[in-house]
Write a protein that binds this DNA or RNA. Structure first.
Lengths: 325, 325
DNA sequence: TTGAAAGCGCTAACAG
DNA sequence: CTGTTAGCGCTTTCAA
């Protein structure tokens, strides 16, 4: 790999001049500029970004930490962040944390030590305390981490209420809820919305709420158990679409017809939900918009570190599909 | 952020000694070591990796470039690479290229300029020529890029033949094929395998082959058209599982029962294939193993640059599920 | 308009 | 066992 010195030598100038040409900064004679440019292209020179980062203390790189790269929700989010990053000349990288606090902190440390300029985290284990000593700007996405961290989320409670009301409106008499892991902020909110709507129903039982941990497998198992012990359930509000697919599978394996015997409504609006049969009715988050906005907020933070902390909440919208009547 | 100097000052030693402590290299008195360690923890010092990278010319980071992060096949692959990277103390990052040559080269350049130690690419647009002037070790995964690049792939042709033979064995009389984009190496191989098995059948028509571009939407549309003009088709070999889901959807929208009216077999073995109903019979690739092996090969390359170029081909295995009888 | 030189934070001879 | 120093490749004063 040629360095700036090689270029300087070849062009018969100093490295400072080459630097000026590369960065289009300061004065440089048109003629020498041409000479330098020629040397650059002849040597196929590309500046070493590590050296640049060392000097500037930044790397023009941002990262997104997601808990589960296999849940399509996160790749969709990643796409948005990536696009916005590219538009703003940031290199984008994606890291998978398994919602494992150690992996999470490992990445955050590693990235900061690489002078990453900012990090967007989807996390339920990062805390204000664990972030002490971290200086990179961080934005929380999808889940609230701390009041001190800017965040982009949706109106989970609202969305959940809408979902449950819709099931009622469709005639469901016994509505259950498959929720996420209880340490995730949006699990609580979605569960809260469900409870709001059912707590005064005389049919409501606390055993109508079971956890699927935001995972397909667990949701499927949980649903089978639920429906075996509570065959009267005729509607399920599922806290995310991935689990929704599992609930569907469970229902079908138990010989139940969807939506005739049991109606299902999910949350997220991932595209997988419409790819399958029956397609899943869902509370759709503006995924792309959220990812974009998180990236935008992050870049703002990077450029002006002492912004006011913002918490933005997006609306979710009901998308009617085949898993409901 | 404290630097090595701050630590040195606080501990009353030179930066060299601090460096020795950090890296556990050379001799250092137990007592001074303790002092240094104390200073480190008091200052919450973490070495600046950019400076290290600049010195060493490497970053302990590897990257994976995938064409479509929304196709679950790639996240699954990514998981494997990530795990192996972590085991070997490499930071892992994932980049999405959309199979867009510019994005691909952009990433490759950007990563090389960041002193990334190695790159695994799933690509159909990178060529030997476009890689001129690139010095990072590269390993091709899933698709062959050039004879000069080590690669990890599967026996696509073989797998395709097995798939088609299985459909025949199940009684299919007219078997169609939904293939991938024609610039991808494995599209040709899978198509080749299909052709091998059907070219001598008197029923075979070239219009039984249509492209779905490895995308859900396109595969669905293509299948609808296919089945409208060729209602006699009773079996489809689909070049990947994601398209398989689309084919399923198309069949169902046309009112066809799977597998009663039409049987479907996919390729890849992504976990989505078993999550849906009916689950998709498929030719399963050893995804995790392949990702792991690619990472291993890459790290070998990094450590000993002039290895012999290896091309490894894994077997695929038939996994019978509900989309076939 | 250009060059010399300091320095970003770290490591690795080399000398003591 | 420890410190001094050069240098990784680049940018940016400061002088000329």
């Amino acid at each position: 790999m040629p360095t700036i010195k090689d270029v300087a030598k070849m062009a018969g100038v100093s490295v400072a001049t080459v630097s000026r040409v590369i960065n289009n900064s300061g004065y440089v004679n048109e003629v020498t500029k041409k000479r330098v440019e020629q040397a650059i292209s002849q040597l196929n020179y590309r500046p070493n970004n590590v050296a640049r980062s060392l000097f500037h203390g930044r790397s023009q790189m941002i990262a997104l930490l997601v808990p589960d790269i296999m849940n399509p929700f996160f790749p969709e989010l990643a796409r948005a962040v990536e696009d916005f990053a590219k538009l703003n000349d940031y290199t984008f990288v994606l890291c998978n944390t398994d919602d494992n606090p150690e992996k999470e902190m490992h990445y955050i440390y590693a990235l900061e030590q690489k002078s990453v300029d900012g990090i967007i985290v989807v996390s339920s284990t990062v805390t204000e305390k664990s972030l002490q000593g971290i200086h990179v700007p961080i934005v929380a996405l999808d889940r609230i981490v701390s009041a001190k961290l800017p965040s982009i989320t949706v109106k989970n409670r609202d969305g959940a209420r809408q979902a449950v009301r819709y099931l009622k409106q469709l005639g469901c008499k016994r509505i259950a809820h498959i929720c996420g892991p209880d340490n995730v902020s949006n699990t609580k909110e979605r569960l809260g919305g469900y409870i709001d709507e059912v707590k005064n129903e005389e049919w409501f039982l606390s055993s109508y709420v079971v956890s699927g941990d935001y995972q397909y497998d667990k949701a499927m198992d949980a649903t089978k158990n639920l429906l075996k012990s509570h065959p009267e359930v005729d509607g399920i509000f599922v806290a995310n679409d991935l689990m929704g697919v599992g609930v569907l599978k469970a229902a079908q394996e138990l010989g139940l017809k969807v939506p005739e015997d049991i109606q299902i409504i999910g949350f997220d609006g991932i595209s997988l939900g419409e790819k399958i049969t029956p397609s899943i009715t869902t509370m759709k988050q503006p995924i792309y918009e959220m990812g974009t906005r998180a990236a935008q907020l992050l870049i703002q933070q990077i450029n002006e570190p002492n912004q006011q902390v913002q918490h933005e909440e997006y609306e979710v919208t009901l998308v009617k599909r085949e898993s409901t009547k």
